[in-house]
Simulated assay, not measured.
Amino acid sequence: MINSVEPFKGIGDFRLGAKREIIREQACGQFEPFKPNVDAFDDAGVHCHYDETNTVVFIESFEPSPPAIKGTKVLGRPLSEVLRDLESKGFDFNEALTESIFPKAGLAFYIDDEGLIASVAVFQENYYEKLNH
């Protein structure tokens, strides 16, 4: 199953802004607390990060349910190639926080040691600005 990635909204059935208890109910109890503010839904290939109010603010997607952005598969590919594909679909990656975090596009990518995308994340608007304050 492919996880559909929607910047600023969610990944698959996991939605930004949802409460932790709702996310856990939807997952039918198939999760494991990963850190105090993170639940791992490894069967779905998703980690949900929560703020102090137990609201989802950041969602990361990886195997075994590969994420796709507007039909573009991203895992195992070089970032530059994926960005080029997504720019052709209307994404703007001109403003970057780092080489793989794009706050205005609502996307962040984790790059593995081989230089390939290992996961993709979405987050709430202004997520990174709030971290810096």
Rank of each mutant, 00 (worst) to 15 (best):
I2E: 14
I2F: 06
S4H: 11
S4R: 15
V5P: 00
V5S: 03
E6C: 09
E6F: 08
E6V: 15
E6L: 14
K9R: 10
K9N: 09
K9T: 05
I11G: 04
D13T: 15
F14R: 15
R15E: 05
R15M: 11
A18Y: 13
R20I: 02
E21R: 12
E21Y: 06
E25W: 14
Q26S: 11
C28P: 13
C28G: 08
Q30E: 13
F31C: 05
F31M: 10
F31P: 03
P33D: 13
F34P: 02
F34C: 09
F34E: 12
K35F: 08
K35R: 15
K35W: 09
P36M: 14
P36R: 14
P36C: 14
N37W: 07
V38S: 08
V38I: 05
V38P: 01
D39M: 06
A40D: 07
A40Y: 11
F41Q: 04
F41D: 02
D43M: 12
D43Q: 15
H47Y: 12
C48A: 14
D51K: 07
E52H: 11
T53P: 13
N54F: 08
N54A: 13
V56C: 12
F58A: 07
I59E: 03
I59W: 08
E63F: 09
S65R: 14
P66V: 06
A68E: 06
I69N: 04
K70G: 01
K70D: 06
K73C: 08
V74G: 01
L75C: 03
G76C: 01
P78L: 01
L79I: 01
L79H: 01
L79R: 01
S80D: 03
V82S: 00
L83D: 00
R84Q: 09
D85S: 07
D85T: 13
D85F: 05
E87F: 01
E87R: 05
S88Q: 14
S88H: 10
K89E: 09
K89G: 04
G90Q: 03
G90R: 04
N94T: 10
E95G: 05
A96M: 03
A96R: 02
A96I: 00
A96Q: 03
A96D: 04
E99L: 12
E99D: 12
E99Q: 11
E99R: 13
S100Y: 07
S100R: 06
F102D: 00
K104W: 06
K104G: 11
A105E: 01
G106M: 06
G106L: 10
L107H: 03
A108F: 04
Y110D: 08
Y110Q: 06
D112V: 01
E114S: 08
E114L: 08
G115P: 00
G115Y: 00
I117P: 00
I117E: 00
I117S: 00
I117D: 00
A118G: 11
A121S: 09
A121N: 02
F123K: 04
Q124M: 13
Q124H: 11
N126I: 15
N126T: 15
Y127R: 05
Y128A: 07
E129V: 12
E129I: 13
E129F: 06
K130F: 09
K130E: 08
N132P: 07
H133Y: 10
